[in-house]
Design a protein around this nucleic acid. Structure first.
Length: 470
RNA sequence: GGUCCCAUCGUCUAGAGGCCCAGGACAUAGCCCUCUCAAGGCUAAGACACGGGUUCGAAUCCCGUUGGGACUACCA
């Protein structure tokens, strides 16, 4: 019986949940679910000057929206300072850590000097063997790093990565203000929370040997590591605001479905043969680190948009009806508390979902079904609402007058009749009608549109179009 | 600068020595379908960064070069 797998996502609340963080969270989540393990959420907020409660809420909101449910937490490091203190004291007592009285300014100065003279900016260890405290200075605590030999990181994605210990320096584990630092807290927490697999971004690979030595000094087993490749922007630099939206919730605002984003994100670095579209169950079933690539990936908004379109097409119209409501309000197509016949709206969405790539697009297209009045696109009006179409529109209006129910079948009959009588093509009638009813030149099939718009609005809009032509 | 990581179409990727004069997907172009726009179908163009090895045989293994990235904080 092997030990149960436990993974964690440990964001620092210095910003919203972004695309890169979301993918790290996703891979952790998938690995946990695939192995029936558990997934811990931990907030790394030891940098008090940059962390805020708003960001913690935002990260949780993003995780929930994506459906990345966790099993324990969220834990906050700021609630755990006494625990870190205990471990620091232990390391000092055992001679694995020591007080350092060098001031931040001195350190900075030495670092600048080393860099300027082309030397490695490494702490020189001058406080390592201090016998007595330096008066007037409040010390930080440094970890005593071995200076010889090698440290090997055995990574599930990268394989064996070897570091020379001579490259590592005695890093600070507790600041002079008594707060612990990242490379220390991360180990203490991962030990304390019995994390078995550390799945995180590539940018942490170089920190790993430092952390391994903390594990060793504390006498704990070293977990497995999996360092994920980074996500880049279109210019192959680290993804940032310059490349467009990076906050996960911005994609909610733009009308993306969480499952589409998840599906897109998982394919950035992971693959399963040639398959592109996965259900959540398939993702959990097939996920493994063996199929995670090593190279950084460029975030491609076009493919995400395509995937979102696929998810919309394959979503039930009932579900889309619910999802689109907030967007109808935001686009001011309906009022907050306005009544809408859901069954009717569902039929309208049936006609629109294969031409909408986002919920925002879907909401906007719904306008001509829902609104009382429509506005004409100028070009469309000029091209199709003119003397040439006038008689056809009048004829249609008159023909529809006697029909009580505008069904697809009835409409088709009437259109055919008029077209034959006037010896024109169907499109010569369909396009003017389309503009008269929707205001634009693209829409679902004209018979479906009229059926859903209904007789009353259809008649009114036809009359208005005829009047406009004059 | 030092250390570490990475390298297949524009982009995401398949590929674990012969199945590959390299497959799929997005995007692009053309055609079909068609009342418009989509969706869908078909087709086209498009890549193993470079140079050395190893091997009967290399996209796949090794070395180097080049190019990208990360880390190098009393940030995480």
């Amino acid at each position: 019986m092997t030990e149960k797998i436990r993974v964690r996502f440990a964001p620092s609340p210095t910003g919203f949940l972004h695309i890169g963080g979301a993918r790290t969270a996703l891979f952790n989540y998938l690995y946990a679910r695939h192995n029936s393990g558990s997934f811990v959420l931990r907030i790394e907020d030891t940098d008090r000057s940059r962390s805020t409660d708003e960001y913690i809420e935002a990260i949780i909101e993003g995780m929930k929206w994506l459906g990345l449910d966790w099993d324990a937490g969220p834990f906050r490091q700021t609630d755990r300072f006494d625990i870190y203190r205990k471990y620091v004291d232990r390391l000092i007592q055992e001679g694995r850590a020591y007080y350092c009285y060098c001031s931040a300014e001195e350190l900075e100065e030495r670092r600048r000097l080393a860099l300027a003279t082309g030397k490695m900016p490494k702490y020189d260890g001058r406080c390592r063997n201090l016998k007595a405290p330096v008066p007037g200075e409040i010390p930080a605590v440094r970890f005593k790093m071995p200076q010889e030999g090698q440290t090997i990181v055995d990574d599930l994605i990268r394989g064996m990565v070897v570091f020379d210990n001579s490259q590592l320096d005695d890093f600070i584990i507790m600041r002079s203000d008594g707060t612990p630092t990242y490379n220390f807290t991360v180990v203490v927490d991962d030990v304390d929370m019995r994390i078995t697999h550390i799945v995180r971004g590539d940018d942490h690979l170089n920190n790993t040997p430092k952390q391994i030595h903390i594990y060793k000094a504390l006498g704990y087993e070293i977990p497995k590591f999996a360092h994920l490749p980074m996500i880049l922007g279109s210019d192959k630099t680290r993804l940032s605001k310059r490349h467009g939206a990076t906050s996960v919730m911005a994609y909610y605002e733009m009308g993306y479905l969480p499952d589409a984003l998840v599906n897109y994100l998982v394919r950035l670095g992971w693959s399963y043969g040639d398959q592109e579209v996965f259900s959540r169950e398939e993702l959990i079933k097939h996920f493994s680190f063996e199929h995670v690539g090593k190279a950084a990936a460029v975030f491609n908004p076009e493919k995400l948009l395509w995937l979102n379109g696929q998810y919309i097409i394959h979503s039930s119209s009932e579900k889309l009806t619910e999802l689109v409501m907030p967007f109808l309000v935001k686009e001011e197509i309906i009022k907050e508390d306005q009544f809408l016949d859901k069954a009717w709206l569902c039929k309208a969405i049936d006609t629109l979902k294969e031409r909408s790539k986002t919920l925002v697009e879907l909401a906007k297209s719904l306008r001509y079904y829902i609104a009382e009045e429509i506005e004409y696109n100028e070009k469309a009006k000029e091209k199709f609402l003119n003397a040439k179409s006038r008689d056809l529109l009048i004829e249609l209006k008159d023909s529809l007058f006697s029909i009580s129910d505008l069904s697809h079948q009835e409409l088709e009959k009437v259109f055919k009749m008029i077209v034959e009588k006037h010896n024109v093509k169907l499109k010569d009638l369909a396009q003017p009608v389309r503009v008269a009813i929707t205001g634009v030149t693209e829409s679902p099939g004209i018979f479906e549109v009229l059926e859903i718009v209904g007789k009353e609005k259809t008649m009114r809009r036809l009359e208005k179009a005829i009047k406009v032509i004059g």
